[in-house]
Every structure is written in C-alpha cells, then in structure tokens.
Amino acid sequence: MDTPTQFFRSILLALAGNRAVEALALKYGLKLGASQFVAGESLEEALEQVRLLNAKGILTTLDHLGEGIRQLSEAAVYKDEYIKLLHHIRATGAYANVSLKPTQLGLALDPEAAYTHIREIVTHAKSFGNFVRMDMENSPYTDATIQIMKRLHTEGLSNVGTVIQAYLYRSEEDIHLLTEEGFNLRLVKGAYKEAKSIAYPKLSEVDENFKRIIAHRLRSTIYTGVATHDEKIIEWVKSFVKQERISRSTYEFQMLYGIRMPLQERLAREGYTVRCYVPYGRMWYPYFVRRLAERPANMWFLVKNMIKR
C-alpha cells in the first residue's frame, strides 16, 4: 500500500503530462515560485546565475528545458539553442557544461534524426573542450539513450556521458557493464513514475541500490557525478572515499539549482567538486513538477508563495 508521500508523488507526476495544467502553470508559475527551481526563461538569465555560482566555487551544467516534443522541427530549434549555448559558455568563460534530454532532440519521433542532432551538439562541444550530459528520462528511453552514448564514443566523441537511475532494477548491471567500458556517468535515485515490475517500490531499497552503484563506480576511479540532495548519502560518500582512499579528483557532487544551496556552498568550501544543474527556458513545467514530487516541502514552498499573493 502506498504511503501518503508516495500517493502525493504519484498525483504530481501524473500532472506532469497534463497539457491544460501545463498551460496554466506556464502563465503564472514563475511568478508564484517556480523561479526557485528554474534559473529563468532566457539564456542571459541563466548565465547570470552561472556567474554567481562560479564565484562561490560551484561548477554548473546548463539545461535548456524541453522534452516530449510533438514535431521534429522543434528538435532542430533546440539543437540550435544548444549550439548557441556552447558558444556563450566559451565566450563568457563560464565554468559550465551542458545537459540535454534525448526526447527534446526528437528521440521519440525519429531516433536517427535525434542522433544526428545530438551528434552535432557533441561535436561542437568537443571543438570547445566541453562536455555533454544526456539526461536519462523514463524507462522507455533507457536503452536508446545508452546506445546513443556508445555510438558517439565509437565515432571518437568521448566527451559525452549519461545518467543511471538507482530506482531501476536493471541499473546495477548497467553500472557494471558501462564502467567496464569506461563511460562518464551521473548517478541519481530517479524522478519518474515507474511500474513496480521494473523499479524498486520502497525508498529504502532505492537508497541501498544507490549506495551499491556509487561504491562500484567510486572504486573504479572512472569519473562519476554523485547527484543527490540526501545529506545522509553525501555523508556516507564522504566516509566511504576516506576509508577507501579514493581521490576527490575522480568524482563530484551534483545538485539542482535552488535546492540545498547552503549545502552546495559548504561542500565547495570543504574542497569537494560541486556541480549545480541550472535549468532555464520557457518549457519548464514537467521539470518543475518532478521537483515538487521529489519533496513535499517543495510543494509547501509554492503554496506559501501563492498565499502571500
């Protein structure tokens, strides 16, 4: 039986795909509190936040929000935006790489066209000495995303990695195979609604699997992003790397813009590499709903802003 928190999360994630709710949210959401988690609608606004974060010793990854496009022509627009973003990162000297979602580049509509778009972005990034992270979306796209990464590497584009989600049963095996091949990975708990047949239903089980895959990656010394706001997991990582004598140069902590910012700053002051995921753009609604679903406290933050107004 679902707990109240799990039920609340399921309701919110169901709303993530509701077009009518999305239209209403896009009209008022940033004014009511979504700006807590989204750096702005424009690239210029996002780069200003990157500048402020960099000044505190925090690295960033920029994500131009958008997913689940309906027409392939939209993918070409997003591709151009990412190339523009890479040019601006280079021009401003920002300490930033980029993150993108494969469905944003057309994966659900035309996988080969999506690959061509992603390849062009990764090629530009390589010419600038930059890195591209392909975000992992819900389970129908897990295999395809991993295969895109592998294919790009075979073409000499090794400046690209992806994400593994600890709540999927398959992830421990994926970690072993992808680590053997030397891929740069970000590890997360997972933020999509998945069936119990393919994903751990209990948060305690997700946490244990998260620790298992983190331990395997850190022992491998292949560069890894440990993406979590869970301070218990962070303290466990700090203890684990000390015990195993693992260099801080082989991993980084990653967190989201607007969440646990004092913790991000403290870790950076302690000498850990910290990277903040900075999302921006007009199509922020699905991303925002997942942030609300992750922690009920995020929803109460939004409600309080609505009451104030």
Rank of each mutant, 00 (worst) to 15 (best):
T61I: 09
V122H: 13
E137P: 12
S220M: 11
R269G: 07
I146M: 15
A215M: 03
R290A: 06
D2E: 00
Y167Q: 02
Q104H: 10
V303D: 14
G17M: 08
W284L: 07
R295D: 10
Y192P: 00
M1S: 04
L59A: 03
V226D: 05
A34L: 08
R309H: 11
Q104D: 07
L26R: 12
D135R: 13
T123N: 06
D174I: 11
D80V: 09
Y192V: 03
E265C: 07
A75L: 14
K56E: 02
V50T: 06
M283P: 06
T228P: 08
T145F: 11
T273A: 01
L157W: 10
R151H: 12
Y272H: 02
Y287K: 08
F253M: 00
H64T: 09
M306S: 11
S73G: 14
A114R: 11
L13I: 04
I89C: 08
Q71H: 15
N18V: 09
A55P: 07
A113F: 10
P102Q: 14
L302K: 04
R309N: 11
V237W: 02
E45V: 08
N97C: 05
D80R: 10
N54V: 07
G156H: 05
I58H: 00
R119T: 05
E173P: 14
P4E: 04
S158I: 07
M136E: 09
N305T: 11
E180Y: 15
Y95T: 00
F37T: 10
M306A: 15
K101G: 08
E181W: 13
V237E: 01
K101N: 10
R219T: 03
D2I: 01
R9E: 02
G281R: 15
R245L: 14
R275H: 03
I83F: 09
F253Q: 00
K202D: 03
G40S: 11
L256T: 09
V226N: 03
G66S: 13
Q254L: 01
Y82M: 14
F37S: 09
A144S: 09
K189N: 01
K79V: 08
L203Q: 01
E252W: 01
L263H: 03
E173A: 13
Y257M: 08
H117A: 07
L86F: 12
D135L: 11
Q243D: 06
R290L: 06
Q254N: 04
A55M: 06
K79L: 14
V188N: 04
G68V: 13
F253P: 00
I148F: 15
T3Y: 13
K196W: 04
R70I: 14
